[in-house]
Amino acid sequence: MRDRSLQYYLLVPAFMIVVATTIYPLAYSFITAFRDWDLSKQRRPQGFVGADNFTQALSDANFLSTAWVTAIFVVVSVALTVVLAMGLALLLRRRGPLHDFTRIILILPFAMSPALIGVSYRFMFNPEYGVIAKGLGQVFPPLAGIPWLADPHLALGVLIATDVWHWTPYMTFMCLGGLASVPRATEEAARMDGASSLRILWDVILPQMTGVLVVVAVLKTIFALKMFDQVVTLTGGGPGVATETLAFYVYKVGFKWFDMGYASALAWVLTAILMAVSAGYVRMLLKERKMATA
């Protein structure tokens, strides 16, 4: 039947795009990761240096601090987002004018450009005239004059806040989708059996939501690992290198120091981590689907 060939023809345009724009660059940077290339001095890549670029990372204090910052950022941001999103989804599951309004409002933080979010938080947390920094100081005087973005820990905190603010809506909608597929009947049966609302949540709803929650957590992990824009526009990596994430460090090595070989190697470290996480994600997705059709 002609369908047999047609099914592949239909894929051709998309695959040409994917190959040209993803596979090729990936291969290119993979090769570069094994070469010596200082773009500020050399127009063309130099000789192969084996795994030097990768071993360099292990002794690079900057890289190790970056990895640590990234780890903290990912863990805190994922945990906060998942808990907030699930809680919010439970509230928004009911219908009502305020519920519907909230749902619409939630689209806005997600639709906002992350770079702009960084800018606007930078403005709001400015200790001299930022509305949050100054407002907090007026309500709780001990908090007045805190240099939010000049303190390493607080700066990381604000960075996490921007990310949670941006992503919680999306994850809430995913949780809502998951909740919608939890059959009402099981909940009503538990209620007839005399379970309290909290018990129903714990014994009936959450067990049926684990699949969706894992998907949400993994997806958020992937987004958090890729996070870049707010680092540039909110903190610029500072103070010092306190908020430099892995993605930002790759950018710095490549486009501030022009060490293309090392930058490519670092980029591949990040890719490897992401691939590992996403492989797990896709596997879960396939399992989910099997469960859904069973």
């Binding site: 660059p25 950018y251 490549g254 490519s264 980029a267 990040l270 890719t271 994600y281």
Partner: peptide, 9 residues
């Protein structure tokens, strides 16, 4: 899931 920073180099 490939980070943009990898492709951009």
């Amino acid at each position: 899931f490939v980070p943009a920073v990898v492709i951009v180099l």
